[in-house]
């Protein structure tokens, strides 16, 4: 099915009711979805760099002065997308019972000796960008490293927007 731009904008905002969303989930996917979403997101962000790939609810890989960097919608820049953006965040570790019990009722959170919570915030806007539940000492997880050139060149059959 072909989902129009207006509906997609409302979907991104979380405004679609179930009877509007259900056909989008269960129907055939629109083949130009990526381009439509990119157009919406580029209009939505307050800065001018060209988006190469949406990475996260708030983060984008953008082209800037010949580089490909991760940028928050607040404008904060995290640097090279090949480096895990989490390593540029502010971090709060919840590794005590008191800190975990702030979020979960007694008995319904982890035992901090076994597992803690790490909250990764954007240094610019303090939005909570990721929560890792991991044993103490577990390395920060690099969740997604896209192959941007292969995606544009081989899957979409065109050059990436920054290589025209």
């Amino acid at each position: 099915m072909n989902v129009d731009k207006k509906t997609l904008e409302r979907m991104i905002e979380g405004d679609l009711k179930w009877d509007e969303l259900k056909p989008i989930i269960s129907g055939r996917k629109d083949q130009n979805r990526f381009d439509k979403i990119m157009e919406i997101l580029q209009e939505k962000v307050k800065w001018n760099e060209r988006i190469l790939l949406p990475l996260h609810e708030h983060l984008y890989i953008v082209a800037k002065e010949g580089e490909r960097i991760v940028k928050c919608d607040c404008g904060h820049e995290f640097g090279d997308y090949n480096v895990n953006w989490k390593t540029k965040c502010r971090v709060r570790v919840r590794d005590t019972i008191e800190a975990i019990d702030e979020l979960y009722p007694k008995f319904m959170g982890s035992d901090p000796e076994w597992e803690e919570l790490r909250e990764y915030y954007c240094p610019g806007c303090l939005t909570l960008l990721d929560v890792e539940a991991a044993p103490p000492g577990y390395p920060t997880i690099f969740n997604f490293l896209p192959d941007i050139d292969a995606f544009y060149e081989n899957w979409l059959g065109r050059s990436p927007p920054d290589k025209k």
Binding site: K29, A134, I141, F144, L145, P146, A150, F151
Partner: peptide
């Protein structure tokens, strides 16, 4: 090819 992006994905559970 229709739904994903080529690349490396990682996660961990316990």
């Amino acid at each position: 090819k229709e739904r994903l992006i080529p690349g490396r994905y990682r996660a961990s559970s316990f």
